[in-house]
């Protein structure tokens, strides 16, 4: 699948989601906090694109910007976000509302708190039909039950008339997924959709999301901090750190030959389950504050290979075909 998906990257038609040079700043008392810095990212048709990073790397802000739901204090200073070629920036709120839910939908991190506790699940899953299609509630409920069946919720008829607290975490996430795919949006933004779930349930939800990509021809921006999930889910990966894209490429290439010391460290820090790995490895230090970013490379403070060149930030350098990394050492690697 992924080889085929990568083929789409060479096509003439525009990507489903095209983010170009996006910079987002917050005004704080200590000056402008640049939480997203010159991020360029493409999601091509039917691709699952991973955006991976630690907490505070700016990945959720990027997702919110795509939906036009940044907090009021945030400002997009430069860059563009295009959905199937059409720019989303500067659109009036009323127009953005018609896009949300219909063209882009989001699968949230914590399904329990993302469902309204006092409304029946069926009414919530059916909401997009009423909202965007002007359907009556009876039709909407029928559609909701169909969608709940699509996401393999057992007994969708009966479950639709239950309340969220009667659902398990996995079932809640299935319901949220049903709501997201209700109107078959071309783009799904999944913000750590499995982080709040049990490991066994995680696998089920991931399988479901892959199935949705295959059957509904949906593209997905998949935000996570979990490399194992990326390996299993994604076709293409962007590694984000302190607001910057440090490395990007196809999943196989990045896992086979990580170009950036940060990616290498992330890979080492991911438990593999091999007996040889006696203890968990962590990356020393912490992510720099967005108001006090290091000059030069963002990772310089934590990088084991830093040398004098690192005071100057490298551009994305080619590691190999379909794979670039923002590190001076890439060149010497050849």
């Amino acid at each position: 699948m992924s080889a085929e998906a990568r083929g789409h990257r060479r096509q003439d038609r525009p990507p489903v989601l095209g983010i170009a040079g996006l910079t987002i700043e917050f005004a704080t008392r200590r000056g402008a906090a640049r939480v997203v810095d010159d991020v360029t990212l493409d999601v091509w048709p039917q691709e699952i694109v991973g955006l991976i990073g630690e907490s505070g790397s700016g990945k959720t802000m990027t997702a919110l910007a795509v939906l036009g739901l940044l907090p009021r204090t945030a400002r997009i200073t430069t860059g563009d976000i295009r959905l199937s070629g059409a720019s989303l920036l500067g659109l009036p709120e009323a127009q953005l509302r018609t896009i949300r839910g219909r063209q882009i939908a989001m699968i949230p991190q914590n399904p329990m708190s993302a469902l309204n506790p006092v409304l029946r699940v069926g009414a919530q899953v059916g909401e997009p039909y009423v909202l965007h299609r002007g359907a009556d509630w009876k039709t909407a409920l029928t559609q909701a039950v169909r969608r709940l069946a699509d996401v393999h919720l057992p007994l969708p008829d009966e479950r639709a008339s239950e309340y969220p607290h009667q659902f398990s975490g996995g079932m809640q996430q299935r319901a949220m997924t049903a709501m997201a795919i209700a109107l078959d949006p071309p783009l799904l933004v999944a913000d750590e959709p499995t982080t709040a779930l049990d490991v066994t349930i995680q696998a089920q939800i991931l399988r479901l999301l892959r199935e949705i990509r295959d059957e509904h021809h949906t593209s997905m921006l998949f935000i996570t901090h979990d490399l194992a999930v990326v390996a299993e889910m994604c076709d293409w990966v962007y590694v984000m750190y302190a607001g910057r894209i440090l490395e990007q490429g196809s999943v196989e290439r990045i896992f086979a030959r990580p170009g950036h010391p940060y990616t290498q460290a992330l890979l080492r820090a991911t438990p593999t389950g091999e007996a040889a790995q006696a203890e968990l490895i962590s990356i020393p230090g912490s992510i720099p504050s967005p108001v006090d970013l290091p000059r030069g490379c963002r990772f310089v403070d934590r990088c084991p290979y830093r040398f004098k060149h690192c005071d100057e930030e490298p551009p994305l350098l080619t590691v190999e075909a379909d794979h670039t990394a923002r590190c001076w050492l890439v060149e010497t690697h050849g």
Partner: peptide, 8 residues
């Protein structure tokens, strides 16, 4: 927030 993301 979820309600905003579906365009309400």
């Amino acid at each position: 927030e979820a309600a905003h993301t579906i365009g309400m």
